[in-house]
Amino acid sequence: MPDVSLLHTLSGHQNPIFTLAIGASNTLFSGGNDKGVVEWDLHTMQFRRILCAVTHSVYALHHIPNTDLLAIGLRSGEVMIVDYVQQKLVAKMKTESGAVFALQAIPEKSELIAIGEEGVAYVYDTIHFKLLYRFRVSKDTVRTIALDSVASTVYFGDKAGAIYQYSLADYEPMQQALVHTMPVTSLCLVGKQLLSGGRDAKLYQIATPDFAVQHEITPHMFTVYGIVSNADQSQIATASRDKTWKIWDPKTLTLLKNISVDRGYDSHKLSINTILWHEQRVYTAGDDKTIKVWDVSAD
Rank of each mutant, 00 (worst) to 15 (best):
Q86P: 10
R49C: 12
P219M: 06
W245F: 11
W294G: 05
D140Y: 02
I275M: 13
L20C: 02
V54I: 07
Q175F: 11
V90T: 08
Y84K: 09
G23V: 02
S110E: 06
Q175C: 09
A21E: 05
V82T: 08
H180M: 02
D295R: 14
F29D: 00
L28C: 00
L187D: 02
I17D: 00
D242N: 07
K92H: 11
M221D: 14
S57R: 14
A169S: 15
D288K: 00
Q176C: 06
V82L: 11
Y166N: 01
L203P: 08
A146E: 13
P173H: 00
T284D: 05
T244W: 04
Q104D: 02
I22C: 12
L168Y: 04
Y59D: 06
V179F: 01
G23N: 05
R48V: 10
I206G: 12
A114N: 03
F129L: 09
Y133E: 08
V184Q: 01
T284R: 01
G226T: 04
V58S: 09
Q214P: 08
C188L: 12
T218C: 13
Q14F: 07
M45S: 04
F18E: 11
H268I: 05
L187Y: 03
R143W: 07
P107E: 10
Y265R: 00
T44K: 12
L195C: 08
Q205K: 12
N230P: 06
L194Q: 05
H56T: 15
V58P: 03
K202Q: 11
V184G: 03
Y204Q: 06
S229Y: 12
H8W: 07
L189F: 08
S11C: 10
D140G: 06
A114V: 00
I113M: 07
V100G: 04
K159L: 13
D288H: 03
D288S: 01
Q214A: 15
Y166I: 01
Q193W: 14
S229P: 10
E279A: 13
A53P: 11
T144Q: 07
P2Y: 03
M80R: 10
V85C: 13
S167F: 03
L194M: 06
D262W: 06
P250R: 01
V190E: 09
I206Q: 01
F222V: 11
T223A: 12
H180W: 00
L69S: 14
Y166Q: 00
H278R: 10
I206Y: 03
L42A: 08
I81N: 11
I163V: 15
V296R: 04
I291D: 01
K243T: 13
Q46D: 09
D232T: 12
A207G: 13
L189K: 10
T208K: 03
K289C: 14
L103S: 10
K269G: 14
P16A: 04
V79P: 06
T95P: 04
T252M: 05
H63G: 12
V37H: 09
G116C: 05
E118N: 01
V142L: 11
V213Y: 01
S57V: 13
D158K: 02
A162C: 05
A298G: 09
V190D: 08
D266E: 15
L42E: 01
D266W: 04
T44P: 09
Q235K: 15
Y122L: 02
Y84V: 07
T95C: 05
I275N: 08
A207Y: 15
I247V: 11
L276T: 07
D295Y: 00
L70G: 11
G197L: 00
A151I: 05
L89Y: 07
N273E: 06
L131M: 07
L276H: 04
